[in-house]
Nucleic acid binder design. Sequence first.
DNA 1: CTGAAAGCGCTTACAG
DNA 2: CTGAAAGCGCTTACAG
Lengths: 347, 347
Amino acid sequence: MKKTDINSTEIAKLAGVSRSTVSRVINNYSNVPAETREKVLKVIQQYNYFPNVSAQVLAGKRARTIGLFLIEQGNVSGDMLTNMLIVSVIEHASEHGYYVLTHIIRDAKDTEMIKNVKEIFFQRRIDGGIFIGAAIHEPFIEELIDEGFVIGIVDQTLSDHPEPNRIVSKFNNDSGMKQAVAYLAGLGHSKIGVINGDMNRLSGQTKYEGYKTAMRMCGLQVNPNWVLNGDDFHERSGYKVIQKLMSQETDLPTAIIAANDSVAFGAIRALKEHKLRVPEDLSIIGFDDHALSEKHHPALTTIRVDFSDMLKRMTSCLITKIEQKTLDIKEITVDCSLVVRESCRRI
Amino acid sequence: MKKTDINSTEIAKLAGVSRSTVSRVINNYSNVPAETREKVLKVIQQYNYFPNVSAQVLAGKRARTIGLFLIEQGNVSGDMLTNMLIVSVIEHASEHGYYVLTHIIRDAKDTEMIKNVKEIFFQRRIDGGIFIGAAIHEPFIEELIDEGFVIGIVDQTLSDHPEPNRIVSKFNNDSGMKQAVAYLAGLGHSKIGVINGDMNRLSGQTKYEGYKTAMRMCGLQVNPNWVLNGDDFHERSGYKVIQKLMSQETDLPTAIIAANDSVAFGAIRALKEHKLRVPEDLSIIGFDDHALSEKHHPALTTIRVDFSDMLKRMTSCLITKIEQKTLDIKEITVDCSLVVRESCRRI
DNA sequence: CTGAAAGCGCTTACAG
DNA sequence: CTGAAAGCGCTTACAG
């Protein structure tokens, strides 16, 4: 039943024009009279003709595809947040008529994997790419930028990176931490600990810096015993870090701010195992407002970040840049705000 | 800094051979002496050359890209299951050296959206596609199959669809329902209701059929009042259906089997609002073993389905078929098994 | 074993 | 307003 592939030559013949004209119609050239246009369009419709995208790209058009690169060692598949990120990019790209090729980078240190990523760009499969989960300095991404590819990086600053083909989005973690500490201080807490995330990531660092600043602003002491260094932003990290804390003979803080909600879940799980209740015995605040936070027991008080909106903006900026339109904003800033639920109590 | 794009002509020149030979090396032709091969490869490495994929495709190679189409009206982004599905396909395709273009179909009835989907195939962006969430009979998918595209459909049977380019995966819902009913019967339940899912989907129908059969096998009566017809497979549907049941003056069942876990969550939420506890007042069994089911309160007893494995197999089959290798299995059957947790009690 | 040449299906200056 | 032609970067029979 397969219709033998029809091409522009066929369409031209059927419409009684040249391939040039067919192409002009497809590409909306203004110098085609309405009549001719209609005639050609009719044939195109009728024969269900869609121009071969490879031929178009080879002839100089864009692939209208962007790459979405998720750098995640572990269980990408388990996290709802990841899903939201993927879907946000897909849907917003789709609004601009772009497609997205999603790629997972399990290990940004693996040469083979990096080669695969580069290949995607050099093969011209995509017009640009968005990276999520990258370390502060990721050499292979820098190379791609040097090569002139349009690159969006989540959780980075522009600061000393003036390349016009770099787009970044950064989180206002400073503000988030200030809100968290202020809220806890307001509840009467002064013994406030923190669980750090991945310090190779910008958010890992800015959250910790934000925490220290916020504590100082509130006139509170940072107790080094309560600065818990997690490995990453996952549940397990929060769990491990609390286990370690409990195994030591130190005083406990009355409240802990976790690097994100997943980490907070892990921390709460560990606390439970030690018969410590949240918030009765210890207050916990997370970051992100993960889809589960609301349903968690206890419902998690957290600093909400609108990832969906961020990715929407990032996707738009990327596409704007790809299409060479002038792009004024190349740094997207994402604000955050406290969501009070049930994991903190007044003392 | 952007290296001006290097192409096969350049490589040929640098290696002192013809473009033909460069191409032969790239495509692993056997008739290239090791020496020549090394020489060319060295230059390729050195100049970071990757063949332009559009040119390759235009010249007759495959795009090495598959499409993943998710048909989902509502909140695709909220569901962890969806995420797992996406990631499974991406990772398994990646193992075969394929990329995946993910596309979301919000409304399979929308002509514009359907046109977009067809376009992806006709433009030759992809070598084949996998559809998840399709109705039993989806005309536009049938058209694509008629056109000869290699298509994988999740939750369909092959039965009277003998096309060689159709691959399906079906769930053994019959077995799942038998296990669910048997388990409940074993706990002493005889008043067992069911919440149906989307009856336009194969699983919607087979689950209901399976339920009826299983009840009969166990010598139990199906009470029509306890056959609750949900709209789809989402949380809200389970909620609505229970609200409706409670607003009627009918006897309640002692146990309910939900079309899937999300529906079960919704049902439990509604029951809670009516001060009915699970499992004390009513037992509930779900389907899927959603990532949340374990963490749910109460932890949900469910029929586990290994989606990840299914998609892995489907992806492999699709790619095998794309590469024209002989494909013996074109129908993947997925078994399921009861996972006992805390949402059912003995009566 | 290897090169010259045709061809894949488009787009777009160029000329009229 | 429109067609003939060159060109995009590959692959692969074909001929040697």
